[in-house]
Design a protein around this nucleic acid. Structure first.
Lengths: 204, 204
DNA sequence: AGACTTATCTACCACTCGATACAAAAGTTG
DNA sequence: CAACTTTTGTATCGAGTGGTAGATAAGTCT
């Protein structure tokens, strides 16, 4: 059987470039011209490999999730619920201001509101954001069983709170806030989290 | 001197309709066809009244800010820093899930990332979001002078924290979260705020 | 080598985008 | 009424949108 002409570009490398464009300009704001230029390929190659603009986004999101799952593995491996929260927020302060990427979070920047042909994009992004919240909640449920989270604590509420702060930090970062600003938000947010740290103030 | 033909539509009513479209679809996602249809006018009337699509957004943002300034007046009138924070977060839980408006916050939904012709839109929105943070910070500085906020507290950090949570709540609301979910986030967030409430857990 | 399969490139599709030229219409003022 | 000013609707502008047809190139297989 003949095998056909091999692909002349690396799919993952191209996806990384596409991811950056979606990240910086959002789904609607990312035109095919921008995408193909960044990826170094022509439209027919893009469509042969990813099917459509939406397919390309989903592939880029899968790759993004893959990256982030490594982060989350480290976060969830924290010894206590408190440490998980600390790791979560501080790793977000770093990643959302990593100069290697556009500022903020792809899952937020990608598009909270879209135009007429792309109504399902916000849902797609929201469902992926929800994954993080679920992982945190389940980890906190476990922490409760382990006894390192108070019986009175509400894992779902804590997970939603952290996930919400993370989204807010994404918005903040995309407005140009620097790393120290995000770290400060993380520190104050942790005062809302039950655990060993008993400083209730937001002093330095 | 002749006065000319009078305008056949009400500017503010039309702006309210435009605001809703920008709110639901973002700046890039809101096409002139959608806007003119919602406003009940034709493109030439739109351009005569607002100059450009960007001019229309700014006019809608001005009107949005006008609405919100009433909210903020109530928020800032809280008797203590703590009460200001409570009013701020709970009023956001309500307004971001008000069925009379699209979910979330126009200043977030409007566009965190935009396409090639609209690079300045995110800046415009970010600068308007920053206003709220400034108002809170100044109120907390005042609270410190008044003695109802601990000397060790950092007004800037607290204001940024609250503003960040508000953005996060906007993202959460736009994903379809209901009012109770936002109220819960507000409640947990308040545990990070110095004040009379000493329950550190997130229990109901 | 020659058959076969797949990728790539050029050129282009129909359509929508934001924005406008022009003339008719609707008022106010003398 | 007639002169003047501004708005309105129709019809359209050039540019850019996501997406594709068809020919050619580049490989693998027998």
């Amino acid at each position: 059987m003949a095998m056909g002409r091999p692909r002349s570009f690396d799919t993952d490398t191209a996806l990384d470039e596409a991811m950056e464009v979606f990240w910086r300009h959002g789904y609607d704001g990312a035109s095919l011209a921008m995408l193909t230029k960044a990826m170094g390929i022509k439209p027919p190659s893009l469509y042969a490999a990813f099917g459509s603009k939406e397919g390309l986004l989903k592939a880029a999101l899968d790759r993004y999730a893959q990256r982030r799952s490594e982060h989350m593995r480290y976060v969830l491996a924290g010894a206590s619920a408190r440490e998980v929260a600390e790791r979560f927020l501080s790793s977000i302060a770093e990643s959302h201001t990593d100069p290697a990427n556009p500022p903020g979070c792809l899952l937020v920047q990608g598009g909270l509101a879209c135009g007429e042909g792309s109504e399902n994009i916000p849902f797609e992004l929201a469902s992926r954001r929800a994954l993080t919240e679920t992982e945190l909640r389940e980890r906190f449920v476990q922490a409760k069983r382990d006894g390192d989270l108070a019986d009175a604590a509400d894992p779902a509420a804590l997970a939603r709170f952290l996930s919400t702060v993370a989204s807010g930090m994404g918005v903040l970062a995309s407005s140009g806030a620097d790393r120290d600003a995000l770290r400060e938000v993380a520190r104050v947010s942790l005062s809302a989290f039950p655990g060993q740290d008993e400083t209730r103030t937001a002093a330095p």
